[in-house]
Amino acid sequence: MERSFVVRLPVRELVAYAEDFARTEEWDPGTVSCVRLDDGPVRTGARWRNTSRFRGRTTELEYRLAVQEPGRLVFVGENRTVTAVDDLRFGDEGGSTRLTYRASLTFKGLAKLAGPFLRPEFERLADQVSARFPAAAETRRS
């Protein structure tokens, strides 16, 4: 799933906001909680435990920051049934930022069979993220 939207923050500020994956609580409607598992500055290898609710079920994934570049962040989350990749790309839009957000899920084992049937619900979640993310980041700035 991919969505692209503009956030009224400069690239550097938006990257600083987004690199702390614990903030998914603010913009991801499925996230119940997200807790940092290590200390220190956020850098490649930093880890979080994300608890999400989807279709009435709660699941936990451990995420790590796999790529941290000035215009790109990639978070990879895993548990025994799925690998999730959140790829965020940031581009300057004259003082604002165009964020291109790609989320991909790779199901493991028997869960692979359910993947195609769940796509419409994941698309709805992606729409909600694109609606909530700008407001969450812009509000955090104030």
Rank of each mutant, 00 (worst) to 15 (best):
residue 83 T to Q: 11
residue 102 R to H: 09
residue 108 K to T: 04
residue 135 A to P: 05
residue 57 R to D: 12
residue 4 S to D: 08
residue 1 M to D: 11
residue 108 K to Y: 10
residue 125 L to Q: 14
residue 17 Y to S: 00
residue 115 G to T: 07
residue 18 A to C: 15
residue 103 A to D: 08
residue 48 W to H: 05
residue 32 V to E: 15
residue 126 A to Q: 13
residue 21 F to H: 06
residue 90 F to D: 00
residue 57 R to T: 15
residue 48 W to Q: 06
residue 98 R to T: 14
residue 111 A to W: 03
residue 12 R to A: 10
residue 107 F to Y: 14
residue 37 L to F: 02
residue 112 K to I: 04
residue 104 S to H: 14
residue 5 F to W: 02
residue 139 T to H: 09
residue 69 E to A: 12
residue 12 R to I: 10
residue 56 G to N: 11
residue 35 V to F: 04
residue 28 D to M: 09
residue 93 E to G: 09
residue 56 G to M: 11
residue 108 K to A: 06
residue 43 R to G: 01
residue 92 D to F: 08
residue 3 R to K: 15
residue 80 R to I: 12
residue 32 V to P: 04
residue 142 S to L: 12
residue 125 L to I: 09
residue 48 W to I: 05
residue 41 P to E: 11
residue 135 A to S: 11
residue 4 S to K: 12
residue 21 F to Y: 13
residue 128 Q to A: 15
residue 120 P to M: 05
residue 87 D to F: 08
residue 74 V to K: 01
residue 24 T to M: 07
residue 23 R to K: 14
residue 20 D to P: 05
residue 31 T to A: 13
residue 9 L to V: 05
residue 92 D to G: 08
residue 108 K to I: 03
residue 85 V to W: 00
residue 57 R to E: 11
residue 97 T to K: 01
residue 114 A to F: 15
residue 46 A to V: 00
residue 106 T to R: 12
residue 33 S to E: 10
residue 75 F to R: 01
residue 5 F to H: 00
residue 51 T to I: 15
residue 108 K to W: 08
residue 95 G to K: 08
residue 137 A to K: 02
residue 29 P to E: 05
residue 74 V to W: 02
residue 89 R to N: 07
residue 136 A to Q: 06
residue 77 G to H: 00
residue 12 R to T: 10
residue 35 V to C: 03
